[in-house]
Design a protein around this nucleic acid. Sequence first.
DNA 1: ATCGCACCATGCGCCTTCTGATTATCGAGG
DNA 2: CCTCGATAATCAGAAGGCGCATGGTGCGAT
Lengths: 226, 226
Amino acid sequence: MRLLIIEDDRDATDYLVKAFREVGYVADHASDGEEGQALAMDGQYDVLIVDRMLPKRDGLSIIAALRANSVETPVLILSALGQVDDRVKGLRSGGDDYLSKPYAFSELLARVEALARRRGSRGEETVYRVADLELNRLSHEVSRAGQELQLQPREFRLLEYLMRHAGQVVTRTMLLENVWDYHFDPQTNVIDVHISRLRSKIDKGYTQPLLHTVRGAGYMIRDGAR
Amino acid sequence: MRLLIIEDDRDATDYLVKAFREVGYVADHASDGEEGQALAMDGQYDVLIVDRMLPKRDGLSIIAALRANSVETPVLILSALGQVDDRVKGLRSGGDDYLSKPYAFSELLARVEALARRRGSRGEETVYRVADLELNRLSHEVSRAGQELQLQPREFRLLEYLMRHAGQVVTRTMLLENVWDYHFDPQTNVIDVHISRLRSKIDKGYTQPLLHTVRGAGYMIRDGAR
DNA sequence: ATCGCACCATGCGCCTTCTGATTATCGAGG
DNA sequence: CCTCGATAATCAGAAGGCGCATGGTGCGAT
């Protein structure tokens, strides 16, 4: 699940990004209305979380602009206490939601998931499975053929991302963005190193390798039969 | 047990939330009908406590909307004295309940528990057990291998929350929200400190540690084969 | 006024992650 | 089929970060 948070309060944003990441969601953020709108315009997000009051361009006008360009990503509006006016009501009828500050993260999470579900985006599995390889996102357990494996945090995120996109080639750039939160090329072989270590844990000793290198493109995890 | 209180009177709400928390229930709240309905729609609660008179959308219409969406969470209606009209009576026959203000909290509690029980909801265990570690939510007693342990209040809440989610990684954000009621990052190591203290009480001197650190993710309690 | 609990700050130690060099593998073209 | 350049894999050392423990401070309760 990909989220975009458009919010100018730095602390609040950091807190949210961290919290969403902890539960395994990818959260980008924008600190003003223009930047946020530009990002959201691609329609690559499952849910947008938008502050009512923003520099450069307020939350409601962003939504209007998106809808005018037929970007139908559901939006959850954050508003200061008691600030919910009639326009917000109007928006809600469009299928979106609002939440007034202060709020509990768990509440926000619940609503975000509700929005995503309503829209039909799958609610995110708790267990990923590829052949006899299993990853449990709640307990952070990973096993192959029933054998428990010990992964490091980064390796876990890496595998989680790969398994979420099982059967698809995952590019290095995708990994940098979503597993490392790098938005630039580190010019090193970080990825290779971790792929190597991960591979030694999940594939070593098994006849059927699951983590495949796609030369020149990236990596892919899948039941190698075929 | 998870409760949702939909009530616009701030003081009354705070009082209830606190009171329920003291007896170990998780109580969310919404201050108007729309917000309440949105929250309740997820069906994540065991019982709803709904004021008759609410801004934006009155209590009965919320219930109607929920039932229309086949959300069958039992509802207890709070109504001003003598306000019990026929429609409310109708609801009662359907298995729900009402209570007129003013009321005693103990009575409210009893009815809420009755509703939860009638529904067959797993009413919430009163004793959590993980391996030889036991926590009694009613008596606030904690013991390991039959040995009574002395916990501080905060430590108790912490352990209670961890044990409720035994076998799952509990993130720092979850702890901040649910054990500390912080909705921001305190930028300190409060959690670490209390985990440390708790650990020294429940794990020190035992060969089998139960409270595990999941580096980069959070903490988890479980019968730690491993 | 005193006690005790919760919180904060600091420093330490270990584990994870990254780096950079080296070796291996791939694939295309001669 | 061999060679060569490019790409990927491996390895081990280093540094940084994260989590842990301890002692100190403040505040609320008794």
